[in-house]
């Protein structure tokens, strides 16, 4: 009961935010958290089932570059460009995913195949520099005054906040749907033991493929919206190994086994990076990500279920035990 009431209260706050005059900088951070939170959630949809992709930058890049290129080269509205990017990403997901699952490329090998995919997309973008601007990136042409529903360009951050919020809510809703549906049980079974899953009648290849297509589609959608928000795309920031690993780590740091975990990951990483950036200034480039890297290592060693996952586990243990409440609190303080 209290959980549900908390959810509604939280949602009300989120919806009310753009109307209370939040400073632009904070609005920007919130939008980033929502968009990245959505992308991380999309990754976690498949990551939690043992399908650890190190190449989600491929889908993000396809989503972002398709919409930008379609707009600049063909004059195609993002309303069509984004679905086009999503469709392309799904197509790539099938082309890669089907043989992977069919031939049982799992674990390390799956991770490395997806890593290669991410690099293929990044390098293709760079190699097509005549159209994409190569590693310098690409800026979608402005439309009129800067605000246009047709061009999906908005000068006000508030509008994008609402779009990002809706996107993010949809992501959480889908995560929950996947979690609740039979697919979840089937996938749980097959991430543990494919043969056992196959023997109870789960079509392993089809199930994995469906989840991968869904994840790719959502990631590309996130990429498209991200491109529209920043109105700038760069192969380094939307594709390739760097962003692919960033997606994986943030999702894991937050906790990929709970609905809000990846979002918590986005909050932690973005807030951390921003705080460190402001605290240290731009003089000392790299300190924020250095700390970030150390934290990632520590997370994986000590908190493999992520911050949120770890907290929930701790909470459950505390409510079950009762006596260890104080010790538990101290542990949270130490861990966070």
């Amino acid at each position: 009961m209290t959980g549900r009431r908390l959810q509604y209260a939280g949602l009300a706050v989120l919806v009310a935010l753009p109307f209370v005059g939040v400073p632009e900088y904070y609005m920007h951070i919130l939008v980033l958290i929502l968009i990245w939170g959505f992308v991380y959630t999309a990754w976690a949809i498949m990551g939690r089932f043992g399908l650890v992709s190190l190449g989600h930058g491929a889908f993000l890049g396809i989503g972002a570059y398709t919409v930008a290129l379609a707009w600049n080269l063909l004059g195609l509205t993002p309303w069509l460009g984004i679905p086009l990017g999503v469709g392309l990403a799904v197509l790539v997901a099938v082309v890669i995913g089907y043989p992977c699952f069919r031939f049982r490329v799992v674990g390390h090998y799956f991770a490395l195949v997806t890593l290669a995919l991410g690099e293929v997309v990044r390098l293709t973008i760079v190699a097509l520099r005549d159209h994409t601007g190569g590693s310098l990136g690409l800026t979608p042409n402005r439309y009129g005054e800067g605000t246009s529903l047709y061009a999906l360009q908005f000068a006000d951050k508030e509008v994008f906040y609402v779009i990002a919020l809706l996107l993010w809510l949809a992501g959480i809703w889908i995560w929950r749907r996947v979690d609740a549906s039979m697919a979840r049980f089937a996938m749980d079974a097959l991430s543990e033991d494919e043969d056992a899953a196959a023997s109870v009648g789960v079509h392993v290849t089809a199930q994995k493929l469906r989840i991968t297509m869904l994840s790719a589609a959502l990631t590309a959608l996130g990429g498209g919206v991200y491109a529209q928000y920043l109105l700038y795309v760069n192969p380094g920031t939307v594709s390739g190994i760097g962003v692919s690993l960033q997606i994986v780590f943030a999702a894991i740091a937050g906790g990929m086994f709970t609905a809000l975990g990846p979002t918590v990951g986005a909050m932690i990483t973005i807030v951390l990076a921003e705080t460190l950036r402001i605290a240290i200034g731009t003089e000392v480039i790299g300190l924020d990500t250095t700390i970030y890297g150390v934290m990632l290592i520590l997370f994986i060693i000590f908190l493999p279920k992520g911050v949120l996952g770890g907290l929930i586990e701790l909470y459950e243990r505390r409510t079950a035990g009762g006596a260890g409440a104080m010790a538990g609190k101290r542990e949270v303080g130490g861990g966070a």
Partner: peptide, 10 residues
């Protein structure tokens, strides 16, 4: 694999 990925960032 992921821990060494954290090391990559570091």
């Amino acid at each position: 694999l992921l821990a060494t990925g954290g090391l990559l960032f570091f």
